[in-house]
Amino acid sequence: MIGLLAQEAALTDTGEWIANGFFYAMAAVAILGGLKMVTTANVVHAALYLLVVLSAVAGTYVILGAEFVAVTQVLIYLGAIMVLLLFGVMLTRAKLGGEEDLDHEQRWIGALVAAGMLAVMSYSIWEAFDTQKLPGDRTPQLTQQVSDEIFSTYIVPFEALSVLLLAALIGAVVVARRD
C-alpha cells in the first residue's frame, strides 16, 4: 500500500509533484533533526531526534520503492537499536536535564572537516550525475524479489553476516559482563 506513492510518482506528473513534495519534506525533517541531534545539550533529546531522522529516512525509502527496507528500518532501527541506545543512556546515568560539556571545546575543527567533506562530496555528486533522472517506469519491488535475491545470489554474504552477528553477540556479552 505504501508503495502506491512510488508507483504514482512514476506514472503521472501530478504523482511526481506529490512525491517530490513528500521527499523534500522528509529531507528537511531529516536534516533539521540531524542538526538538532548533534547540537542538543540533552542526551535523551538527541536520542529522540535520531528517532525522527530515522523515520524520515524510512520515508525516503518508500519514495524509492524499497518498501521492505523501509519496514525493516522501522523495525530494527526504531524498534531495537533505539531501545538499545536509550538503555545505554540509562545505564551510563546521563543527566536527564541539559548538560554543559557534551560537546568538545574544539568542535569547530569537526565542523570544518564536515563542511569540507560536504563541499567535496556535493561537487563530485553534481559533476557525476548532474540532472540524471530515476527511471520513470519503476515499480515498488516486492519483498519476494528481495528474498529471492538474498537467498540465491547473495547467499554467501548472508551467511557471513549471520556469523558476524553471532560473533558480535558473543563479543558484546564477553566485553560487557562483570568479572
Binding site: V113, A114, G116, M117, V120, M121, S124
Partner: peptide, 8 residues
C-alpha cells in the same frame, strides 16, 4: 576524515 576530504 580531514585527510580523506583533502585527498578526495
Amino acid at each position: 576524515f580531514g585527510a580523506a576530504a583533502v585527498l578526495a
